[in-house]
Amino acid sequence: MTNKARERLTHREKMVERRDKMLIHDRANERATVEEVFDQTTRMVVFDLLNSGILYEVNGAVSSGKEAKVYWATTKEGTDLAVKIYLTSSAEFKKGMLKYIEGDPRFKNIKRDTRSLMALWAQKEFRNLREASEAKVPVPKPIAVKSNVVVMEFIGKAGTPAPSLKEQPPKNPQRTYSLLITYIKRLYKKAKIVHGDLSEYNIMIWKGKPLIFDLSQSVSVEHPMAQFMLNRDIVNLNRFFSRLNVNVTPTEELHKLVVGK
């Protein structure tokens, strides 16, 4: 065997080993759920991301929900990334997600099988993150999307996510509220989207300022439910900040201010 052929074989063996052991850093109690998240197709998607150099290591899960798990990963240079994997086994989630896709002019010719829907949902989050970022709204920077996997900036340090508003109320609630209203306006006016599920649970405090995450359900302002969802976002923010003694703008007035009517 030539040296070149031996090098190719060694490289291939190492990549296979990385694929099979990429969860070696899993935190306690994570291995019981590995098969649920990493079905064979998803394993190959993550392997492709490793092989392409987008990811170098995939570590333990940092958050877990009915529809997705988020893993802490790193690049070869040591940069932290978040890998969000939508569960293809989430039949209950599939039933509810269609209302956020149908009616959004950005997405047409929708395939309704579970894997196609999850891939579309991942594409939707990636696009929403990109459009929000371009509108100067603080969100995790989108890095890559493939099938049901979204790679984005990790908000936090060394695998520990930044706290949400629910976990750690802001030191200056009035300023935080004002910034969030500015971000909602930018989402609507510049990105042309509505978050749709904004609350203290999906706003982080990072470097002293609020940062919005979980944009998978966000819809175009042209979506039939856009105004209802915008109103719900405002109600949620006003409810939370009222408890912190912030002088909030009345919901109807704020709604008009955002949409410019």
Rank of each mutant, 00 (worst) to 15 (best):
T42M: 07
S220N: 13
T114H: 11
K136V: 04
K207G: 00
E167C: 04
E131V: 06
E17D: 14
V16P: 03
L120K: 06
H195Y: 09
V58S: 00
K166V: 08
R6D: 11
M118L: 07
S218L: 05
A144F: 13
N202K: 12
L23F: 13
L179Q: 15
M15L: 14
S90M: 03
V45F: 09
A132Q: 05
E167P: 03
W121R: 08
A135T: 13
F241T: 05
R115M: 05
N3S: 12
S220A: 11
A119K: 02
H255Y: 15
K4Y: 10
V139W: 03
I24H: 12
T33N: 11
T74Q: 04
D39F: 00
E13T: 10
L237C: 09
N245D: 09
F240A: 03
Y177K: 00
F241E: 01
P210R: 08
A32M: 10
V46W: 00
K94G: 01
A61H: 00
R130Y: 05
R18F: 06
L87K: 15
K84S: 04
G156I: 09
V137E: 02
Q217G: 06
E134I: 06
Y56I: 02
V16M: 13
S216V: 15
D48K: 12
K192F: 04
T182S: 13
A226P: 01
Y100Q: 05
G156Q: 09
A122R: 03
S147V: 02
L198C: 06
N247M: 07
D233K: 02
E77M: 07
R115N: 06
S89E: 11
V139N: 00
K256L: 00
N148T: 08
K94W: 03
A158L: 10
E17W: 13
A61M: 07
V83R: 06
F241S: 02
G159L: 10
D26G: 09
R115E: 06
L187E: 00
Y71G: 01
R6P: 01
K111R: 10
S63T: 14
A119W: 02
N172T: 13
F126N: 04
L211P: 00
F47H: 12
M1K: 10
V150W: 01
